[in-house]
Structure formats: C-alpha cells, structure tokens
Simulated assay, not measured.
Amino acid sequence: MQKIILLLALLTFNLSSSQIKKKQVLLIGTFHYANPGLDVAQLNSFSIMSEKSQKELEIMSDKIKKFGPDKIFVEWEFSKQTDLDKFYNKNTDSLFKNNKSEITQLALRTAKKLNHKKLYGMNLYTPFRYDSLMMAMEKANQKDLIQRNKVVTENFEKQHNEKIRKSSLQEMMLYYNTKQSENENIQWYLEVANRGGNPDDFTGASLVANWYKRNLYMYSLIQKLTESTDNKIMILVGAGHAALIREFISHDPTFELVDLATVLK
C-alpha cells in the first residue's frame, strides 16, 4: 500500500512539474579576466582593456540585454552582498576603466543597461586543499598519478595560453561554454584528484566532495533567490563552477538552459 501511495505521489509531482513554466537560465562560464593567479594552473592574462575587447564587451552586453535576464548572479561572496551593492553603485565609467574583473566588465555592464538595481552574489568560498592532495599522493607513492597531474595541468595551461594569443574575447567565451571545455573542467577532479592518497586516505575524495558541495550550495542560493516573478536569469561564474551548475540545472524541471552561442549569434 505504501509503495502505491509513493508511486502516486511521484506521478503527481512529475505531472505538476511538467506543467510549470520553466525559467530560462543563461549560464556563462568564464576564465578570470583579471587573472589573480590564485588557480593551480598558471594562465596568461587576456587584454581585456584593449579597444577591441571593450568593443566586444559592448556588443556582448547588448545581446544579453536583448535576452533580458531579470536577475544576474555573480561569483561574489553571498555574505558580502552589502559590499557588492556599494560596488555596483560606484561611478560606472571609472569601474570600466580601472577594474578588469568579469563581474565589472560583463555582468555589471549588462545589469546597468537593463536598469537593474543590483547584482546578486552567490559565491561561498571554501579552502581548496591542493597542497594536502599533493602530500597525500607523495605519501602514497603515487608517482604515475603525480606525473599525470603535471601533464593535465600543463596541457590546460598551454591550451588556454594559445587561445589567448589567437582568439577574440567572444571566441574565448564561446569556447569556455562548449561541452568539450566543461568536460575538461570536471575531468581533473575525477581522473586525478579523486584517486589521491592511500586506500585508507580520502584526502583526494574529500577535496572533490568539498568542490561539489560548494557548487551545490551556490546552486541552492540561485534557486532560493530566483523569485516567481523572474522569467529569465543570468549566471556568470568561473568555467569550473559552470560545468557543475549546468549539470544541476539539467535535472531541475523548473529551469531551462539557454546556450550562450544562441544569445551572441
């Protein structure tokens, strides 16, 4: 009897979910325009302040404005929303000339064109224990895995730096939102990090679990802060976050992903 009730409840839920008007989500994964050098991979900086890039940003933000998100979420600490509000209300021209961050150059630029009152911070920073992972690999004498980690990291650095030399800003942005790029961003965690440590040492798996947890918490904030009156939202995050958030959205019947390429075409 309990099984029948459960099945009926699931059927009712599925039917009601299918009747919900889905909210469109423009998820944009990006490299860091300002490149603070805090990531494991050492990547060259992109000339975001060049005249060409600034023109591209104007065109990109105009096209996103046409898409018309009701809210824009950015990788800013949720607990520091007051600081983000103050930042948003600073002199716009000065910010565009002096702040290289993708939050300023793309998200804020777009939000201002849409006459939004604010940006929404949804980042939840957690320490990334890379040194502990490497120590666990050394302790486990995982020489092949250490070498594989070096190769994967160097290949990523080389690929990114070559693209910087050859590509426009829009080409870079479109690439970082392809399935290939997303797979590469997730691959390291499962191919390398999750294997780190002795059989009774879960340092690697703990790092991966904390990475997934952080992204789930961020996604939880997006879900909670998206109101019933919001028909479209935009999310701007580092490409590594976008790869997981895209996966979460694909299993959430209340949201519908919109491809960046279709917006910028």
Rank of each mutant, 00 (worst) to 15 (best):
K213N: 10
Q159Y: 14
H241R: 10
A193W: 00
L221Y: 15
N185I: 12
W188L: 05
M137H: 06
T178Y: 12
A243G: 07
I222E: 07
N141Y: 13
N215Y: 03
K179I: 09
N194P: 07
N161C: 09
L190C: 08
N194W: 02
Y189F: 05
Y212G: 02
E162D: 08
I186E: 07
N183I: 14
Q187S: 14
Q180S: 01
M137V: 03
G238S: 01
G240T: 13
N183Y: 13
G238A: 06
S220R: 09
A140Q: 14
E171I: 12
V151T: 08
E138H: 02
L133W: 03
E182I: 05
I164Y: 01
E171R: 12
A243F: 14
M172E: 07
H241T: 00
R246V: 03
Y219Q: 06
N198M: 04
T178C: 06
N177R: 11
L244V: 08
A243V: 12
R246M: 13
K213A: 01
T178L: 04
E162Y: 11
A239E: 00
A209H: 10
D230H: 08
T226S: 09
M135N: 06
Q180T: 03
Q170I: 15
L145T: 01
V151L: 00
T229Q: 01
M134P: 02
A205D: 07
N185V: 07
E227H: 06
D201Q: 13
K232M: 04
Y212I: 10
N215A: 07
M137D: 02
A242H: 11
M234V: 07
N215K: 12
D230K: 11
E184L: 15
N155Y: 03
A193L: 10
I233T: 11
F156S: 11
T153P: 06
I186G: 15
I186K: 12
Y212F: 15
N231M: 15
I235T: 07
K213R: 03
K158A: 11
E157M: 08
E191C: 11
K224R: 14
R195M: 04
E227I: 11
K143W: 05
K213D: 10
D200M: 07
T178E: 10
R214Y: 07
L145G: 00
T178W: 05
V152K: 03
A136K: 12
G240R: 08
R246D: 01
W211I: 08
L221C: 10
R246E: 10
N231L: 14
L244M: 08
G197Q: 00
S167E: 13
T229M: 06
S228N: 04
Q159W: 02
L225I: 02
E184A: 12
T178P: 06
N185H: 15
N183C: 14
Y212P: 04
R165S: 08
G238P: 12
E191M: 14
A205S: 12
L133A: 00
Y212C: 03
